[in-house]
Design a protein around this nucleic acid. Structure first.
Lengths: 149, 149
DNA sequence: TTAATTTAGATGTTGTTACAATAAATGTAA
DNA sequence: TTACATTTATTGTAACAACATCTAAATTAA
């Protein structure tokens, strides 16, 4: 059952066209499946991604600009995502000492703990997911990287 | 320049984890680039996709359910997308004769014309896009399909 | 130093998505 | 035929995204 059956479209202009549609469709497919996982913990996907970036920085802080730079989906509003996370006490926001325009955002202990819980679920989810071998995944990564060059 | 440099994350749990992130990132990368193209014609991406499905059906009509079934991003609200397209006279909506609950949606001549214009731009855009050969695209399609099984 | 420019982040507005609730038509079973 | 469940599509609402605008701080140039 490939993309062609999934969206009931028999013909594509060429393989590139099909690949572009396939990426969009697969992304949506992944989203649908992952979203439920996050929602159990009261997080949206963008919120989870920001938390992950903050953990990557930990114990160093991140500025909002750094978050924007690294977010998977640049379109979302980092400032307001941080608002939401702060309201849930998952991050700490304080003015940066050497540049008072900037804001230091840090993941809190509660944030780290929450991520740990989610990640173990996510691990299992990923394991269950996949018909691809490690080598095939590597190949997929190579092709996606090359597509974007 | 691969995904690792793009999002400044050196380590990934494994290639599958990296691939999932890579798909999400590549999707967003494609979106950003395509969105401008559609916006020139006053369409959003979901609106364009619905129009494409309707052209695929043409001259047969599609019900709203069929649209939902085939949309790349199931999350969007087909009924309201059709509203928008109808307001621009790109589609025609009328009650289905043999099931009065259902609605027949048809692409209009104006819709077909608009698609033709967009597609020629899109063709060029796709051509310019890509460092991947036809064969590599086919391989990418194969891997994405297999991921979803 | 002052004035203009740039940068960081927050906020306002508009439109869209997500999800639940609804309404209307159809199907099913007593 | 009536009652109840199911299907089809629309609508209401709250949250969110997209995009422009704004404020404050820092940088640059005169």
């Amino acid at each position: 059952m490939g993309i062609s059956e999934d969206i009931k479209q028999e013909k594509f202009k060429n393989e590139l066209n099909k690949a572009i549609i396939n990426i969009v469709y697969t992304n949506s497919w992944l989203n649908t499946r992952q979203a439920g996982l996050f929602k159990d913990y009261g997080l949206t996907m963008p919120q989870y991604n920001v938390l992950r970036i903050l953990r990557g920085q930990h114990p160093k802080p991140a500025t909002v600009n750094l978050l924007i730079d690294r977010m998977l989906d640049k379109s979302s509003n980092a400032s307001r995502i941080v608002d939401k996370l702060e309201a849930k006490n998952l991050v700490i926001r304080k003015q940066c000492s050497n540049d008072r325009r900037a804001v230091d955002v840090l993941i809190s202990d509660a944030g780290l703990e929450l991520l740990k819980k989610i990640d173990s679920k996510l691990d299992k989810w990923e394991q269950d997911l996949c018909g691809l071998s490690e080598e095939e995944c590597a190949q997929l990564n190579h092709l996606l990287d090359k597509l974007r060059t």
